[in-house]
């Protein structure tokens, strides 16, 4: 374990320290730390605690992940799940970064919304909903954002079939 930590780059080691802090507080609600060099991340296993984790990550004085750089929706067809990947960062006191994954059931699944924690999440969650169809519980204004309101289907899902016509316009060309 010690040896593995020594092989990590400084950036990943910082992420690991931050992860250890969160792990201590939330225990089994989050997964093991994935110390890959390009994007170190952990997964939230108990999605219902996601908002608590988010608030802790933002407000803990040793973490201060005040900047949500990116929130991307991802499709995991082989697990029958869809999820989000959030990239966090601290602007100001620390330089650490970490990524967090949250997954939910593909059909009718839902993830708690963190738009009350980071305003950035508001539009990004709308976009993820627009493209993947997971519902964000507690989102103030969950509507499609890039596609038209009355579009059918979730375009970025791997099994997406485009609709034949839209208001009389032929869609696939």
């Amino acid at each position: 374990m010690e040896e593995a930590a020594n092989q990590m780059s400084p950036a990943v080691r910082e992420s690991k320290t931050a992860y250890d802090n969160i792990r201590e507080r939330f225990g089994d609600a989050i997964s093991e730390f994935d110390a890959n060099p390009t994007m170190p991340f952990f997964e939230v296993l108990d999605a219902s605690r996601w908002v608590d984790i988010a608030l802790y990550m933002r407000d803990n004085s040793l973490l201060q992940f005040n900047y949500l750089a990116c929130l991307s929706g991802v499709d995991y067809p082989e697990e029958q799940k869809v999820g989000i990947v959030c990239n966090f960062e601290c602007i100001g006191k620390y330089t650490h970064r970490i990524a967090v994954k949250v997954k939910c059931q593909r059909d009718g699944g839902s993830i708690p919304s963190v738009s009350c924690v980071w305003h950035t999440a508001n539009w990004h969650e709308r976009e993820a909903y627009d493209m993947y169809g997971m519902v964000f519980e507690g989102h103030p204004d969950l509507r499609r954002i890039l596609c038209p309101e009355d579009w059918t289907g979730y375009p970025l899902r791997k099994d997406y079939q485009v609709q034949e016509t839209y208001h009389g316009i032929k869609v696939p060309y």
């Binding site: 005040n66 900047y67 949500l68 602007i91 100001g92 980071w118 305003h119 950035t120």
Partner: peptide, 8 residues
């Protein structure tokens, strides 16, 4: 500044 960071 803090709101700006929170807005990303």
């Amino acid at each position: 500044a803090d709101v700006a960071i929170n807005y990303g």
